[in-house]
Every structure is written in structure tokens, then in C-alpha cells.
Amino acid sequence: MNIFRLAGDMTHLLSIVVLLLKIRTTKSCAGISLKTQELYVIVFITRYLDLFTRYVSFYNTAMKLVFIGTSVAIVWYMRLHKVVKQTYSRDEDTFKHYLLIPPCFILALLIPLEFTVTEILWSFSIYLEAVAILPQLLLLQRSSNIDNLTGSYVFLLGAYRALYIVNWVYRFFTETHKIRWIPWISGLVQTALYADFFYYYIKSWKNHEKLRLPA
């Protein structure tokens, strides 16, 4: 474990804490894409299939359980909680997220890490995570005003994968000296998708003005 990966995991965890905080304290999920949250449930479940078959460390197992548990809890809040579900921006969250699943699955069949079910699903989850934020970014463009917690959530979510890229560079030079095409290219695509959000988020933060994304 290196500091970049720990920072990445903690940033990822913090993004989820911020989202849960927003939903629980404001009893609202306005501006949050349910479709992105549902994709994350699929990402975590397909990525952590080895949860009970391969023990890496307490930290690893604990974090996997937290990520699966919180992502399911968020979807539960947005779909079933009597108060929160009323605040879901249903008619703005229109990205056809199910269209993202077949290409990622086909890509995982064409370029898996290994031709085993768990590795094909692991590759699928890496590819899907790269594009899972798209419904959320589209929703942000449509939201007239983005509240601070939602903006922070998306910023932290983008920052975590950027920190993972630094971790991959660090590990390449200090440990493995091996190129890991699947996570690296997916991670770069994933982080690149946040590029314009990062630009407008940092600009709004510097100018102390409300975050607004151009439509």
C-alpha cells in the first residue's frame, strides 16, 4: 500500500460519505443520478466477486464490504425511501445507462485480463466504472443550481481515480515494472471524462461563485 493508493481509497470513501451525508441530512437526492448509482452497484459487485474466495487483507475486505454496502444503501434511499425518492430528478436523469452495459461486456469478452468468469467480470467492472459517471455529468449539466455537497461528491469521485493513476505510476517504477493496460487506459478515460467538470468546479471555487456547467 502506498500513500497515493491510500489517498485514493480515502477520497473514494469520502465521496460516498459526502453523498450519504447529503441524502440523510437534507433528506433529498436532488441533482444525483440514480442511474450512475445503479451502475456503481454493478461495478462493485462484479469487481469484488473474489470477496469471499480470496483474502488480501482486513483493509481490502472491509473496504469492499463498505463500497458494496453503501452503494446499495444509496440506491435503496433513492428508490424506496418514502421522503428521499420524491426528490429524485426523474425527468432530468434520462441518460440511457443500460446502453453502457453491452459495449463494456463485449469489450470484457474481447479484452479480458484472463478468460475466466471472474476475470472477465472484473474487466467488465473496470470498463463500466470508466463510463458510469456519464449519467451524473449529464444531470449536472441540466441542473440549474448544483448544491455544494453534490459538487463535492462528484469532485471527490473524479479525484479518487486520478490518485489511483498516480499510484499506478508509483507502483510501476517501484514495484511491478509491468504495464497494466486494462485499469490504466480505463482509469485515464474515466479521469478525462471529469476534465471539464474539474475545470468549472475549480473555477467556481476560486471565484467563490455558484458551480454551473455549460449545457
Partner: peptide, 10 residues
């Protein structure tokens, strides 16, 4: 193929 230790990441 990926070295197994790389699968210690989340």
C-alpha cells in the same frame, strides 16, 4: 497476464 499482486487494489 496481470501479476496477481496487482489484484490487491480496490
Amino acid at each position: 497476464a496481470e501479476t496477481p499482486e496487482a489484484k490487491d487494489e480496490l
